[in-house]
Every structure is written in C-alpha cells, then in structure tokens.
Simulated scan of single mutants.
Amino acid sequence: MKKSLWIGLLVLFCPLCAMAQNTFDGTWKIDTNKVQMSKKPDVIVLQKGMYECKTCVPPISVKADGTDQTVTGHPYFDTMIVQVVDDHTVKETEKKGGKVVATSTTTVSADGRTAHFDFTDSSNTNSEPVTGKGDMKQVAKGPGGSHAISGSWVTSDITGFSDNGLLFTYKEDGGKLSMTTPTGQSYDVKTDGTEAPYKGDPGITTVMVKQVGKNSLVETDKREGKIIAVVRSTLSADGKSMEMVFEDKLQGRTMSYTAIKQ
C-alpha cells in the first residue's frame, strides 16, 4: 500500500521543466503542506494468512508469514515480505534482486478508523533512501474477522519526507530541458513533445514535455511505450511557485501539489 503512494509521489516529485526564457530554471522543493492526495482509496485485505492489495497494479496476493514471497509485474521490487507484528501493526519489506529496497510499518488505531505509517524507500533512488511518514483514514471496513489493516484507506496527511525526495533542479537551454533530482533521476528532452529517455527510474523508460500556453507545460511519462502518468505544471505570475497536477494513469488517481522555488 505504501508503495503505490510513494511511486506516485516519486513520479509526482520528479518535475516538469523550463521555458525558453529560463523562467523555470533553478532548484524547487515540494511543499508537503500543499499536497492534495487522491480520494481514490487503497483496498487491503489481510486474513487467513494472506495479504492482498486489491488496488495495486497489478494486484498483489502473498502469504503474510514473514517470508519472501515472489511478486511479478512490478518494476520496483520482485519479492515482498509481510510480517504481522500484532493485531493492529503490519510491517512490509520489499526487495529486488535479493536487496531490500523499501520497508514500511503501518499501525492502525484502537478504533480502526485511522492508521499511521513510516517508510524508507530506495527502490527509485541511486543515493540515500527517501524516508517519510503519514496518516490514513479508513473509508470502508474490511471483511469480518480480518486484520485491522483490512479495508479501504485514503492518505490524509504526509509529513517528515526527507529533502532528497522533495527537491529537483532543471535547466533549459535552446529549447531543451535538463532535469535532475538528488535521488538520481534525470532526462534531457526538447520541450516540443519529442520523446526522450528517462534515466534512473526502473518504472519510467521515456518522457515527453510539451509547452502549452505561456506558463504551462505537460509532461507525459511512459513505460515500454505505455503512458503511465501525466503531469501538468503552471507557473505563478511571480515565478516563485508552480501548481502541478499529477495523473496516475495506471491506478486512475489524481494528486495536486505546489513546488516552491528555492
């Protein structure tokens, strides 16, 4: 469940680009107080020794016995460990090629209506792991007799993200945009919609950026030729902030956020 959130945030935080006047040039930082998360819930069921993420793409169904379980179709990890710590706490560990790339611990409140999570994630980084925490709200209960984590959840708050997951820098020169992040993502692409390689992200293979109007751009991310995300960016009149809308085409989710120029 944390993976779908973080993948979404990582793509969301890997930004759009610059215009001919270099107005977008510089380093920017996502303001986590101004992130509007998707209202579409994550659906989790943990019962009878099995863990299911029904809204993951593709869906995940593994034994919740604390051992490595093979997961297919996910570019960021290939095995997953689900450990039931107690009646209200679950720990997830994801690996790729035998190496731990992400961990998360989710603790559900006594009344079952809210949950808190902490995570570390290096599945999309070439440097130090991104860390963070957040809270969720239950919008529908899980099956009777299932673990407290079962149900439909929406993320209500995210805090404590490490800066390496929030910062990005780009430079435009001669109609070509260069984007870099502290976690190792980068691309060099013309801002006329020409497709180019997206580097450092196992889930994105190519990118296109198109200027729309004076202060807006549209980034389209693809995986093996399939559109997986679209990000629309609009620069403020004073050039100090950008309003961005992220559409996750795989999961049918939309998030919005603000980036502040540093």
Rank of each mutant, 00 (worst) to 15 (best):
T125R: 12
T220Q: 06
T125V: 10
Y198C: 09
G132F: 07
K141N: 12
S150Y: 06
I149L: 15
G151V: 11
G200L: 08
N164V: 10
N124T: 13
Y187A: 13
G144P: 02
G184Y: 02
A229G: 12
T234I: 05
S216N: 10
V154F: 07
A237I: 00
I149D: 05
L177R: 00
M136V: 05
S146P: 02
T125I: 03
N164E: 11
V209W: 02
N124Y: 12
T206Y: 08
A237M: 06
S178Y: 04
A140Y: 01
Q138C: 10
S152K: 13
K240T: 10
A229Q: 08
P143C: 01
P129K: 08
V207F: 08
K133C: 10
Y170K: 11
Y198R: 08
V207A: 07
T131G: 12
M208A: 15
N215P: 00
M242E: 12
R232Q: 15
V212Q: 15
F161T: 09
D135I: 00
T155I: 15
R223L: 13
S241F: 02
T194M: 02
D248Q: 01
G174A: 03
Y187I: 01
V230D: 02
V245I: 10
I204V: 15
D201C: 11
L166N: 01
D188E: 14
D238S: 04
P182R: 06
M208G: 10
T169F: 06
D157H: 13
Q211P: 00
M136R: 12
S162M: 07
R232H: 11
G144R: 03
V218H: 01
T191W: 11
V130M: 14
T183Q: 09
I158C: 06
D192H: 05
G142M: 03
M136E: 12
T220A: 04
T131R: 13
D192L: 02
W153I: 03
V154H: 07
T183K: 11
R232E: 15
D192R: 02
T220M: 06
K222S: 08
S216G: 03
M179L: 15
F168E: 08
K226V: 14
S178T: 15
V207M: 11
V154T: 15
L166F: 09
D173Q: 14
I158V: 15
S241I: 06
T194G: 14
I158E: 02
Q138F: 00
E219L: 09
D221P: 00
K226L: 05
N124W: 12
A148G: 03
L235Y: 04
V245H: 00
D135A: 10
S233F: 09
V230M: 11
S156N: 07
K137C: 00
